[in-house]
Computed example of a mutant assay.
Amino acid sequence: MKLVLFDVDGTLVDSQNIIVAAQRMAFAAHNMEPPSRERSLSIVGLSLLEAFTVLAGPQAPVESLTQAYKDAFGTLRHDPAHAEPLFPGALDCLEWLGAREDVILGIATGKSRRGVAHLLDRHDWHTVFSTIQTADDAPSKPHPAMIHQAMAEVGIGPENTVMIGDSSYDMAMGRSAGVLPVGVSWGFQPVTALNEAGAGHIVDSYTELGAVLTGFLGNPSQAANAAPMSLS
Rank of each mutant, 00 (worst) to 15 (best):
E196C: 01
R100Y: 13
S185M: 02
A145H: 14
V154Y: 11
T109V: 01
T127F: 09
M173Y: 08
L120E: 12
D136F: 09
G187P: 08
N160G: 13
W125P: 00
A117V: 04
A145Q: 15
Q189R: 15
E159L: 10
P190T: 01
E101K: 13
K141T: 09
P190I: 01
A145R: 15
Y169C: 01
V162M: 08
M151I: 02
A145G: 08
R122N: 14
A199F: 03
E101Q: 13
T131E: 07
A108Q: 03
A199C: 06
A99E: 15
A197D: 11
G155Q: 06
I156G: 01
V184L: 05
T192A: 14
D137C: 04
E101G: 12
A199P: 04
G157K: 09
M163R: 05
S130C: 08
V103N: 09
P181F: 04
V116L: 11
H143I: 01
R175N: 11
A99W: 08
P181N: 05
M173A: 03
M173P: 01
V162C: 09
G157A: 11
M163W: 08
M146R: 00
W186V: 00
A135T: 04
P144C: 06
E101L: 06
D166G: 03
H118M: 11
W125D: 00
F129A: 02
I156K: 01
D121K: 10
F188P: 05
W125V: 00
K141Q: 08
K111F: 12
T134W: 07
A197Q: 13
D102L: 03
G178Q: 04
A135E: 09
Q133P: 04
H148Y: 15
V162D: 09
A117K: 13
S140C: 01
D170K: 00
K111Q: 14
I147K: 04
A138C: 13
I132Y: 13
P144G: 08
H118K: 10
V128T: 15
E196D: 15
M173S: 09
P158C: 12
M146Q: 14
D136I: 01
E159H: 13
A197I: 01
A152Q: 15
A108L: 02
A117L: 06
F129H: 02
L105C: 02
G98L: 07
V184H: 11
K141S: 04
G115W: 14
P139R: 10
G98R: 12
P181T: 02
H148T: 11
P144L: 03
N195S: 12
E196K: 10
V103G: 08
G98W: 12
M151L: 09
I132W: 12
R113Y: 10
Q189N: 15
P181E: 05
Q133I: 00
G110N: 08
S185C: 00
M173N: 00
G157F: 06
P144N: 10
V116M: 02
M173T: 03
A99Q: 15
S176N: 10
T134Y: 04
E101M: 07
A197K: 10
H126I: 02
I107F: 07
P142D: 13
A199N: 07
V128C: 12
D102G: 08
V182A: 07
P181K: 03
G115Y: 08
